[in-house]
């Protein structure tokens, strides 16, 4: 769907091929297809709305500079994620803010367990929280996470293990593991 409301059923690959041939409307379609995902990821990292919007802009400008000649070898999110991550880290440094305190603590907590989870997530090392959310919120496979974060699959597994261990052991979140 593009901004005018007209659906564009073309695949990402077809849209990218069109952009490679100078079709700027195809780029616009890709923008609206991935905009919310990018800004959401950016907010996850930065915990700041304005910084997330800056990251959105930087990410799509970076993407636009790849044309013509861009070749999609994996999912588009796999290509975009490292850019979002790097721009977010830069924005966070620039703003001298810490995602662990900001991003998660701003989120609403509906119950004691939810509140506990928010608190535990806030205190998890950023790299463990990243892997945890990519796996269970974004539904990425271990291999996909390894690819987007650019770490070995073994490191993904170990970060995920320690993140879940922290949640299992915390008195406020351990009930979330009860079937």
């Amino acid at each position: 769907m593009n901004e005018t409301g007209a659906p564009d059923s073309r695949s990402d690959e077809a849209l990218i091929a069109a952009v490679n041939h100078g079709d700027t409307a195809a780029f616009e379609t890709l923008y609206y297809r991935y905009r919310d995902w990018v800004v959401h990821m950016a907010f996850r990292f930065t915990g700041d709305r304005d910084a997330a919007l800056d990251v959105l802009q930087e990410t799509f400008l970076y993407f636009s500079k790849k044309f013509p000649g861009f070749r999609l070898t994996a999912k588009l999110t796999t290509f975009l994620y490292p850019a979002v991550r790097n721009y977010s880290i830069a924005a966070r440094r620039k703003n001298e803010r810490f995602v662990s305190e900001d991003a998660v603590s701003d989120m609403p907590a509906a119950s004691a367990a939810q509140e506990g989870l928010t608190e535990v997530l806030a205190h998890l090392p950023a790299e463990q929280r990243e892997v945890l959310l990519l796996r269970f919120v974004d539904g990425m496979s271990m291999e996909e996470i390894a690819a987007v974060v650019r770490i070995p699959a073994g490191t993904v597994k170990s970060r995920l293990h320690y993140a879940l261990k922290a949640l299992r052991e915390d008195p406020t979140t351990k009930m979330l593991f009860e079937p």
């Binding site: 989120m107 907590a109 509906a110 367990a113 989870l117 949640l167 979140t173 979330l176 593991f177 009860e178």
Partner: peptide, 18 residues
């Protein structure tokens, strides 16, 4: 567990309108 999945999704659902 589904319960944890739901809680994680809930904790991450902040939406930014562009």
């Amino acid at each position: 567990p589904e319960r944890l999945l739901a809680a994680l999704r809930d904790a991450d659902k902040g939406r930014i309108l562009v």
